[in-house]
Design a protein around this nucleic acid. Structure first.
Length: 237
DNA sequence: AATAGAGCCAACCGCCACTAA
DNA sequence: GTTAGTGGCGGTTGGCTCTAT
């Protein structure tokens, strides 16, 4: 415990002067040992408060703008897999803080997903069953699978009961298609149901999803957006 | 123009895990 | 093994802003 008069500590919104002082002291001493840093700074703030201010507002390379469409879909996807693991989700969104994502979820996405949950079953009944395209390119080794999904039960996503609807047999394909079905559901937002296929991509463990009709070729920029959206999942493990 | 309610977000709180002594 | 100090995380709160009436 730092030897400070807790009752004398300032609380509430930070002033510009305090921000400047904190920034200066962090640049000088580094962003460790926050209690000592708070003492050294002369700020009447707790180390914890200093750390929070730095992490959520002052830290370099933070994004302060609106959450983008792609970021929103990453949040939706990862929250579906991990639940309220905000810091973990934030690690997949460079420049965003766990607090920001948490607030965004509560104010923008929670109601939306709850509403979608109610209509999901109805919408899924209207989805034409996508084909699971098989080719030698989809055959990957055990190590590669582990690299994508992880091998522990905590890392692996739930396997849904509707896997047979996709005509896939291997566990790897089942997991892929299960995630894909989740993504299809997310796309219901603008009332444009889309099917998908899985294609080879050298940057993403040999595979990536395409939001397109299975037999059509997606636009190049669409492919990039999809890769960005799914990159956190490819990096899991 | 005034007011109430809703929404948003920065900041705080309490708990837990980790580490060093 | 125990304890104190610290950092990190998720939940909650309070105040400000916006919108509808």
């Amino acid at each position: 415990m730092a030897n400070r008069d807790v009752g004398n500590l300032r609380r509430g919104p930070w002033l510009d002067e305090e921000d400047e002082r904190l920034t200066t002291i962090v640049k000088a001493l580094g962003d460790k040992n926050w209690d000592a840093l708070a003492n050294e700074s002369g700020l009447r703030r707790s180390g914890k408060s200093c750390r929070l201010r730095w992490m959520n507002y002052l830290r370099p390379n933070l994004k302060h703008g609106e959450i983008t469409y792609e970021e929103e879909h990453i949040i939706l996807n990862l929250h579906k897999q991990w639940g309220n693991k905000w810091s973990r989700i934030a690690k997949r969104l460079p420049g965003r803080t766990d607090n920001e994502i948490k607030n965004y979820w509560r104010s923008h996405l929670k109601k939306k997903t709850e509403a979608q949950q109610g209509t999901r079953n109805v919408a899924e009944q209207d989805l034409s069953t996508p084909k699971c395209h098989r080719s030698p390119e989809y055959i990957i080794g055990e190590n590669e699978r582990d690299g994508v999904f992880g091998t522990s039960s905590t890392e692996a996503p739930e396997i849904s009961s509707n896997m047979s609807a996709f005509g896939c047999s291997s566990p790897y394909e089942r997991q892929i298609t299960d995630w894909m079905s989740s993504c299809c559901w997310l796309l219901h937002d603008d009332n444009q149901l889309q099917t998908y296929e899985i294609k080879q991509h050298e940057d993403y463990m040999g595979m990536y999803p395409c939001f397109c009709q299975p037999e059509s070729k997606p636009e190049e920029d669409m492919m990039h957006n999809v890769c960005d959206l799914w990159s956190p999942i490819w990096e899991m493990g």
